[in-house]
Computed example of a mutant assay.
Amino acid sequence: MRVLVLEDDPELGPALTRGLREAGFAVDHAGDLADADLKLAVNTYDCLIADRVLPDGDALGLLAAQRKAGSTLPVLLLTALDAISDRVAGFEHGADDYLVKPFAFAELAARVRTLCRRARPARLPELRAGGLELDLPRRRVRRDGVLLTLTAKEFAVLEVLMLRAGEVVTRSELIERCWDEQAEPMSNVVDVLVGQLRRRLGPPDPVETVRGAGYRLIAPDTGGDTGTRTGTGTRR
């Protein structure tokens, strides 16, 4: 899940970015409206977290412009403006959620994760492919019933591969969905991460390398046939 944080505070902005990355999100940071507008134009996000009062204006203007252009990107306003009229204005301009500073980071992360799930209505609580089971709400992975320990990035990559089980997922697609602007598109970060994921999952290897294209998740218990996304062949 990729998130854009729009916050000009020199301490809070980096702290939010760090905390959300540690919570498993890919995070980009913008310090003003112009930078945020540019990032929204060139990247795909699952959620925008925006302060209201910024050096070049009120984030409500950006939000209104996004909604007018047809954007359905979930937006959480994170601001010290706590009057009822401020909250009402936020929702009237298209905000999906409103959280007042100071706040508990655990609550913010939970709200953002909920908004990201809303942005992807087809994404459901559990994915299965072969012997792999991915419990999205609890962030747990099992293989043949055995609970595995994955890092947040390994979990994110496996989630994309399982959502596209049987299909080739390119390296650029994985970077777009699982990394943020700090990732270098021409580096080997994807290959290194997939190598780590393979070691975590153990044999037989469920991830196939498609030379010159990317990676494909296969169902290890069927000799290479693709798996289903639930135990009955439908997603639940």
Score class of each variant (00 low, 15 high):
153 K>R: 15
25 F>G: 02
124 L>E: 04
49 I>E: 09
150 L>I: 02
214 G>D: 15
56 D>T: 00
219 A>K: 07
131 G>T: 03
30 A>P: 00
55 P>Q: 06
53 V>P: 01
5 V>Q: 06
162 M>K: 15
125 P>D: 07
2 R>T: 03
183 A>P: 08
55 P>R: 01
108 L>C: 06
135 D>F: 13
146 V>Q: 03
153 K>A: 14
18 R>D: 14
42 V>S: 00
151 T>K: 12
48 L>H: 09
81 L>E: 03
62 L>A: 09
19 G>H: 10
148 L>D: 10
174 L>W: 09
193 L>H: 09
61 G>R: 12
183 A>E: 11
77 L>K: 02
235 R>S: 11
150 L>G: 01
165 A>F: 13
216 R>F: 08
189 V>F: 00
213 A>C: 06
173 E>Y: 00
90 G>V: 10
179 W>K: 08
219 A>G: 06
221 D>E: 12
21 R>G: 01
155 F>K: 07
73 L>Y: 04
84 I>R: 07
145 G>D: 01
44 T>S: 11
129 A>P: 08
85 S>F: 11
170 T>V: 05
162 M>P: 13
220 P>H: 10
125 P>A: 15
171 R>N: 08
203 P>F: 13
217 L>E: 13
144 D>S: 11
105 F>D: 03
178 C>L: 05
93 H>L: 07
67 R>A: 04
139 R>T: 15
201 L>T: 04
161 L>I: 15
218 I>L: 12
69 A>C: 12
132 L>S: 02
89 A>N: 13
125 P>H: 15
169 V>H: 11
71 S>H: 14
100 V>K: 06
192 V>T: 03
43 N>K: 06
66 Q>E: 05
32 D>Q: 08
186 M>S: 11
63 L>W: 05
222 T>R: 14
159 E>W: 11
169 V>F: 02
29 H>G: 09
209 T>I: 14
101 K>P: 05
220 P>D: 06
